[in-house]
Design a protein around this nucleic acid. Structure first.
Lengths: 107, 107
DNA sequence: TTGACATGCAACCATTTGGTTGCATAATAT
DNA sequence: ATATTATGCAACCAAATGGTTGCATGTCAA
């Protein structure tokens, strides 16, 4: 559940789709999450395992079913850290970029 | 420069390191960005190309050198969209409050 | 002009990744 | 008790990824 795990987990469109689905309705079973997706249940299982490892979802066994719950904290943490990090230099970066482009323009 | 491109670009630790370096000092040349990294210049070139494709950096040629400038906009966009999506209101309010208190503390 | 420096391009390689199929196991419903 | 349902596990596979080496090109300095 390192920062790297979270970034890599989010770096795949299928996994973001799964998060979207859980966001739409939390606590879905594996089978429910598979419905309508263009891959096998086993592929989905692997994706969910990666998301779980990144602490982006939590899992609860209920009888023979496995319920999946989204955990927004890691996303929030990372998003905030990166917004914070890059907004601090925001204007400076933009003006440097603009200056560079202008110089390019004038030649 | 799709959302997917940005997520995938951020999904690699080496590329995040490069962004960190540019954040620390913007407008660095390829050679400068390579210094001290445990990979060849060509590998760095590939990473930078991916970052550029994701619109996370902009490039300007200056003589025989290539200058790299960070572009914080896609990161902000995505981070905000995902924060908004995953904790509409709640955690956002908390962090805003926390930030306000910290600023209050420091002044 | 010639040598050194900064970068570009292409082929190649090992590993990781995202996916599959097939079978096993556990819980529920009939 | 048995069939059905929900999930787990392992082997396998093609393609993408992250990296390399070797050489070419363009630019600056002596």
């Amino acid at each position: 559940m390192s920062e790297d795990d979270v970034f890599r987990a989010l770096g795949d469109a299928s996994r973001r789709t799964l998060l979207d689905r859980l966001h739409h309705r939390n606590g879905q079973t594996l089978n429910e999450l598979c419905a309508g997706l263009d891959m096998t249940r086993q592929a989905v299982t692997k994706h969910l395992s990666i998301l779980e490892h990144a602490n982006l979802i939590a899992v609860q066994r209920q009888g023979r079913e496995k319920l999946h719950f989204i955990n927004p904290v890691p996303i929030n943490d990372i998003a905030e850290r990166w917004i914070e990090k890059f907004q601090r230099g925001h204007l400076r970066a933009l003006s440097a970029l603009r200056k560079a482009l202008e110089e390019d323009d004038h030649e």
